[in-house]
């Protein structure tokens, strides 16, 4: 009986420790990819392929998804039509969130600038930049007269943001904006666009096909059937949403072409964002 009593006390202490670990230790480790499905945010642990549903402080529709460069927080835009919603900073592992600013419209996209101190967003016609610490101090950095801006991506050197506008024919074209000189020139037709971490390569998707682009030679190589590709932090792999297998997130090693299914969902996967650095 005495031994049983000791075991019972140990069990109670162990339960408290496991409970504490579950409560404050929420989250995954190492390489993580966040993705959205309508109003949900999930994170998949690349190594374990374990999927976890996060608890964003909203049940509205979600658009845009980007990790802060330190990997601590996700930038999201939540909206509930006809309300335009808010641009929010959500720290999934700290259980914290901040409403940065009300969205000017149903903001087509939001992204962190490469300097980590600013966010980029559009209102459909213009590209804006706002300091994270003081979003009220936003500024318009480029206006697009004839195109409807839709998606955003920031290059690693921070000098260029890519904005995609509807051509009016259902296709999207990439526009490269030099945020230093405030100049813009149209680039290829694509639905999504992502620079590799070293800026030397680009992966993009067009009409549900993923391509690898050498920005210097302008040579595009077909990679796979899918969309929304993103780079791994080391630039060795990409993750994309497969269109060959419904609602499937696939990881592909660039050098070997080897593919692994990371996650399957029941709903359409929207945005992807690979966490840039290990969580502290």
């Amino acid at each position: 009986m005495r031994r049983l009593g000791i075991l019972a006390r140990l069990y109670a202490c162990g339960a408290v420790l496991v409970g504490a670990a579950l409560i404050v230790g929420h989250g995954l480790a190492a390489d993580e990819i966040a993705f959205t499905t309508d109003d949900q945010i999930y994170v998949v642990d690349v190594r374990m392929r374990r999927v976890e549903r996060l608890r964003p402080p909203t049940h509205d529709q979600l658009r845009g998804l980007g990790w802060s460069p330190d990997g601590a927080a996700l930038l999201i835009h939540d909206y509930d039509l006809p309300q335009t919603g808010d641009i929010m900073l959500y720290a999934p592992y700290g259980r914290g969130w901040r409403r940065l600013m009300p969205a000017p419209t149903v903001v087509p996209d939001v992204a962190f600038a490469a300097d980590a101190e600013h966010i980029l967003f559009t209102d459909g016609r213009s590209l804006f930049r706002a300091p994270v610490d003081d979003p009220a101090d936003w500024m318009r950095i480029y206006s697009f007269n004839s195109v409807l801006t839709r998606y955003l991506a920031s290059s690693p050197d921070g000098a260029v943001a890519a904005v995609f506008g509807s051509s009016g024919l259902g296709a999207y074209r990439v526009y490269l904006v030099d945020t230093v000189s405030d100049t813009m020139h149209p680039d290829l037709i694509a639905e999504s666009y992502a620079w590799s971490p070293d800026g030397a390569r680009v992966v993009y998707s067009n009409q549900n096909q993923v391509y690898l682009l050498d920005p210097v030679t302008r040579r595009a190589t077909f990679v796979a059937n899918g969309h929304s590709p993103v780079w791994s932090p080391d630039g060795a792999s990409i993750a994309y949403v497969s269109t060959s297998r419904a609602h499937t997130l696939v990881l592909r090693q660039i050098a070997s072409g080897q593919e692994v299914t990371l996650a399957r969902t029941r709903r359409t996967i929207g945005a992807l964002a690979w966490r840039p650095a290990r969580r502290s």
Binding site: C13, A20, A21, A73, L100, P135, S280
Partner: peptide, 27 residues
């Protein structure tokens, strides 16, 4: 075990909370 939970889970969570505490106030 208590120290392990404290070191691996609780202290990093507190640090994250502290860092997030100084995030911007909403507009």
């Amino acid at each position: 075990y208590g120290l392990a939970v404290l070191g691996v889970f609780a202290v990093p969570a507190l640090l994250r909370w502290w860092r997030l505490r100084v995030l911007v106030e909403p507009l």
